[in-house]
Design a protein around this nucleic acid. Structure first.
Length: 561
DNA sequence: TTAGGGTTAG
């Protein structure tokens, strides 16, 4: 109907505007602008080859810039390498692509190739070249590049100077940074911000704030940089004040503060801000999930992850590592299996040390020792963290002897155990009742590794001795501690007294615990159970009376015999 | 002839 009537009124072909005769380079340029994926780029590249315009610097530059935006520097380099006489634009674009995507060594080698060709570097060459050094804190290379900046006479450029400030600042060479800053002919908010970041990296919060107050104009990055400075030094109040003063905020402002609250353990404020945030990217979700996981609320971490998943936000390695850590705490084998298969099927690089470590830890703690061992043995080089995960997993699931053997293998492999490793192995000894081995490690820790035993280590030893019935030895160990024993050590001994029905020591230990934590119902329950086991019901009722007197509420789950 | 750079978050 209308289609036909409209098509019949279409202009005849000869009335259409004529195409330009030099259409094809323009059309490739247009095609390039429309590229949304690497696949699109490959198609346009085929056109470039087919039409024989591989030497067209303008087109190839457009192509390389697009490759850069997809972070596909390999493709960019291969196309670049086929250009026989690349101009300055091409060289600069390739260098910019390498910066942040490959090592500083590779980036500098392109720069050296450029100098060997007949192209003279210009002011556009240096910012990304310097940034490549700054990314890796390569100050030696950076200083050499600074020499080239002077040699090629581009040190007056504001972009070049700002990258130098950033480089020196990030490398904690604050005097050099300031020298570059003071010598500038003109400055803008980016140069000021780079200098502020320099002071913050150096740890001089006061100088950073002074610059922030003095700078003539600030942009969002300046505000965020200053706020993150406060967060870095744990000054949440100043950070919040700055956040409230900001007239404009972006996802970085919200996420940094959410993360600050989470790291300080204030999950209520973190959650509130997360809910108020108009934009949430993966980093915001990650901050919240990590926060819940690290603050002993693993179930909340899992819940938030499921919310994120339901909103079709793809988790990255940070989120998955936090989720795995939450799962380790929950100890759910079912969840562990789901996460494991999710991670394995995702594009997350499992060879990244922290991802692999989290996977091992999760599987070990959730009881999938077979999978954990597999991942562990497949590591090219086992580290202390993964050894500890394995030892802890074995010990938690009743393989105390294997756990101890693994600790010895770790020593044979030449790794140096730290205080955490000793806590883990002492706990393993305690679970498996390996008194002799426990003593051996406890002494070795002090004598061979010069580690001063912490209250945790003593608590492990007390638990070990107590469980094996050596209550007096355990009591003497606590009494001989050079540091004040914490409730955990006394609690372990009280548990042992209950286990072995020792009223005499139990009463003394309970007395100390009632002083240390008068409101912990568990201690009263344990003492009362010790009396009950000996049929001393009068004493049982005395303990209950004492509890009532002190207003101690019985925790559900604690059993009265 | 056309084109290009530096600062803020886990």
């Amino acid at each position: 109907m209308s289609f036909f009537s409209r098509s019949s009124s279409l202009p005849s072909p000869d009335k259409l505007p004529k195409r330009k005769s030099s259409a094809f380079p323009v059309s490739i340029s247009t095609l390039l602008k429309a590229c949304k994926t690497i696949r699109n780029l490959e198609q346009v590249h085929a056109q470039i080859v087919q039409k024989g315009v591989e030497q067209d610097n303008f087109l190839i530059n457009q192509f390389i810039c697009l490759c850069n935006s997809f972070s596909n520097i390999r493709y960019a380099t291969s196309v670049f390498n086929r250009v026989s006489r690349p101009n300055i634009y091409l060289w600069n674009s390739v260098i910019r692509g390498h910066c942040g995507n490959s090592s500083v060594i590779q980036t500098i080698s392109i720069f050296n190739r450029m100098k060997r060709s007949e192209t003279v570097p210009d002011k556009y060459t240096f910012p990304s070249l310097i940034k490549a050094c700054s990314n890796e804190l390569a100050i030696r290379e950076g200083k050499a590049i600074h020499g080239s900046v002077v040699r090629y006479g581009v040190e007056a450029d504001i972009f070049v100077r700002t990258s130098l400030i950033d480089l020196y600042g990030k490398c904690r060479q604050i005097v050099c940074a300031r020298k570059v800053f003071d010598g500038m002919f003109e400055r803008n908010e980016v140069s000021w911000t780079a200098m502020i970041v320099g002071y913050l990296t150096f740890g001089d919060l006061v100088a950073a704030r002074k610059m922030f107050d003095e700078m003539p104009y600030r942009n969002l990055a300046s505000w965020n940089a200053m706020m993150c400075g406060y967060l870095k030094f744990g000054d949440l109040e100043s950070a919040r004040r700055l956040f409230d003063e900001m007239t404009e905020r972006n996802v970085v402002s919200f996420t940094s503060l959410i993360d600050g609250y989470a790291k300080a353990g204030d999950m209520v404020s973190a959650r509130l801000l997360f809910d108020q945030s108009p934009v949430r990217d993966i980093v915001a979700w990650s901050a919240l999930i990590a926060g819940y996981s690290q603050n002993g609320q693993p179930h909340m971490a899992v819940k938030i992850f499921l919310e994120m998943h339901a909103q079709n936000v793809k988790p990255d390695e940070f989120v998955l590592v936090s989720l795995m850590s939450a799962c380790s705490q929950v100890g759910s084998l079912e969840l562990a299996k789901w996460i494991d298969s999710y991670v394995t099927q995702s594009l997350i690089d499992l060879s990244q040390v922290h991802v692999n470590a989290a996977l091992i830890d999760m599987n070990a703690k959730c009881g999938n020792m077979e999978r954990a061992s597999h991942l562990f043995e497949d590591m090219p080089q086992r580290d202390l963290i993964s050894y500890c995960s394995m030892i802890q997993g074995l010990s938690m699931h009743g393989y105390g002897t294997l756990a101890v053997h693994l600790f010895d293998r770790m020593l044979d492999e030449g790794l140096t155990p730290d205080n955490v490793a000793f806590t883990v192995v002492l706990t393993a000894c305690s679970h498996a009742g390996l008194v002799e081995e426990g003593y051996r490690y406890f002494n070795s820790m002090k004598n061979d590794f010069s580690i001063v035993p912490s209250p945790d280590h003593y608590a492990c030893m007390v638990d070990l001795l107590g469980r094996s019935g050596q209550l007096k030895a355990a009591y003497h160990l606590i009494e001989s501690m050079p540091v004040e024993p914490h409730a955990g050590a006394w609690g372990a001994l009280l548990g042992a007294c209950r286990l072995h029905g020792n009223i005499e020591i139990g009463e003394v230990v309970a007395g100390r615990l009632f002083e240390l934590e008068p409101l912990n119902a568990g201690n009263y329950v344990l003492l009362s159970n010790i009396y009950a086991a000996a049929d001393r019901w009068l004493d049982v009722s005395k303990v209950r009376h004492k509890m009532r007197e002190r207003g101690v509420r019985k925790i559900p789950g604690c059993s009265w015999i």
